[in-house]
Design a protein around this nucleic acid. Structure first.
Length: 429
RNA sequence: CGGGGAGUAGCUCAGCCUGGUAGAGCAUGGCGUUUGGGACGCCAGGGUCGCAAGUUCGAAUCUUGUCUCCCCGACCA
């Protein structure tokens, strides 16, 4: 993509409403614009990141055996009356009527819909287990949206739902999602700690929240310092994780059972990026979702639900990866891998070398943003640092006179001069 | 939902107290000089002062109502 053609409205100054780094940087980097309280438009750069994250989530769900589908954003009140949540959910649910005065709502979650689909279409235990998921926009009419897309009213969520014939099966599904979540967050460069959590309004008795540690996190969390060591090792060890203490402040009881000694107890702030629940037959009973068991007997489906805040992850990643100049995207979610800087647009050599580099990178399938604007070097560097592409490939008249370009890592700040060929090899290889 | 604050140019804000032709910086367009980490000069364009009523000869400014946004708290799968 050539920057002259790209819609990238960056801001030099910080909009006054933005309080935390991710919000500030998303506005400044031209990723999002607010349209109403807690409701945002995703501009091209932000949308690219969102789709990258979504794709990682999708791949890990698929790998765990879940199947993607798509349920609507708008739901009928009827099924919510069946589950009993139409009255229970409260004002967070956005309700309205259509032209025929039918009561509708913008879905805050999809247990009812998926249970209805299951009930209407699955008859036998032989069809189980099943894990279905979708990645869809949700709306929760939060009293006080804040922190940009971190607590928006409209947000993109991946929600999965598992159906099993018995508890053992449900537990396997739960563990499959548990592991998938750890892998998902790790691929994005995040260390997410699974925490014992309050089960809240969804109800159930087996539940974990996944928190990314960040100073600006909304939740207080407590965890065993052994997590830090485990995270440093970089491998996912389910058994080890299950034996370590970690809890949100809602669940944490000082000095309670399993709480590690003070020297190993860490207190921190966390951003909740995922939440998984086993809730048994809560919805299948309320909505009469049964299958026939092995002996022909009716069995209520054992269910779980598993959410990842996809749009919130964008903010969480920025919270984890930024400095005072801007964002530092991990390569897995970066909107582009390379920012190609032509330091002197209009200079025949610079133009031809950059055009050639751009063509070759694109041909090799490398995502590259080519800054071909007729701007001063400082402007280009500042914008590139702000939007945080992992690699900056800089070509200017001085370097080219020596036959070199500069390759800079945004993450480490390291710069290396090298020939055009070796730069290409580094980026394509 | 309780408390506080703010709506004036694309952004950041001044002007309001004490009513009298709407401002600055940045951004944008043009020209020139510049050009390796957010240049400089000159010129230009751009505003229903959130909206509505009221007071007044006259309202961005005073009064009332209303809408929206932000912050703190409570709330939050």
């Amino acid at each position: 993509m050539r920057l002259t053609a790209f819609f990238l409205p960056t801001l030099k100054e910080t909009p006054s409403e933005a309080q935390i780094a991710s919000h500030r940087l998303m506005l400044r980097a031209g990723m999002v614009r607010q349209s109403a309280a807690g409701i945002y438009s995703w501009l091209p750069l932000g949308w690219k990141v969102l789709r990258k994250i979504e794709q990682i989530v999708r791949e890990e769900q698929d790998a765990a055996g879940a199947q993607e589908m798509l349920m609507p954003t708008i739901q009928s009140a009827d099924i919510w009356r069946e589950s009993g949540r139409y009255d229970a959910y409260g004002k967070e649910m956005l309700r309205f009527t259509d032209r025929h005065d039918r009561e509708m709502l913008y879905g805050p979650t999809n247990e009812e819909l998926i249970t209805q689909l299951f009930r209407d279409n699955v008859r036998s235990y032989r069809d189980l287990p099943k894990i279905l998921y979708h990645i869809q926009w949700k709306f929760r009419d939060e009293v006080r949206p804040r922190f940009g897309i971190m607590r928006g009213r409209e947000f993109l969520m991946k929600d999965s739902y598992s159906f099993d014939v018995d508890f053992e099966g449900a537990k396997r599904s739960y563990e499959a999602m548990f592991t998938a979540y750890l892998k998902t967050f790790k691929r994005m460069g995040l260390t997410a700690i699974p925490m014992q959590a309050d089960s809240g309004a969804i109800g159930g008795n087996l539940t974990h929240e996944f928190h990314v540690l960040a100073e600006t996190g909304e939740s207080g969390v407590f965890y065993d310092s052994a997590y830090d060591e485990l995270a440093a090792k970089g491998e996912i060890d389910l058994a080890a994780l299950n034996n370590l203490y970690a809890a949100t402040d809602e669940k944490h009881v000082p000095g309670g059972p399993n709480v590690p000694p003070p020297e190993r107890l860490r207190e921190a702030r966390g951003i909740e990026v995922g939440h998984i629940f086993y809730f048994g037959t809560k919805y299948s009973k309320a909505m009469n979702a049964q299958v026939q068991g092995k002996n022909g007997e009716p069995v209520f489906a054992e269910m779980g639900s598993y959410g990842i805040g996809v749009s919130r992850l964008v903010g969480a990643i920025i919270e984890a990866y930024h400095d005072d100049r801007g964002i530092k995207w991990p390569e897995a979610v970066a909107p582009f891998k390379v920012g190609l800087v032509n330091l002197k647009v209009g200079d025949a050599t610079c133009d031809s070398v950059c055009d050639d580099l751009y063509g070759k990178l694109v041909a090799a399938g490398v995502e590259v943003l080519y800054d071909d604007r007729d701007e001063r070097a400082g402007v280009k560097f500042a914008d590139l640092d702000l939007i945080g592409l992992p690699w900056q490939l800089v070509a200017g008249p001085k370097g080219l006179a020596q036959g070199v370009v500069e390759l800079k890592s945004r993450a480490t700040g390291e710069k290396h001069e090298m020939s055009v060929e070796s730069a290409l090899a580094r980026l394509i290889g």
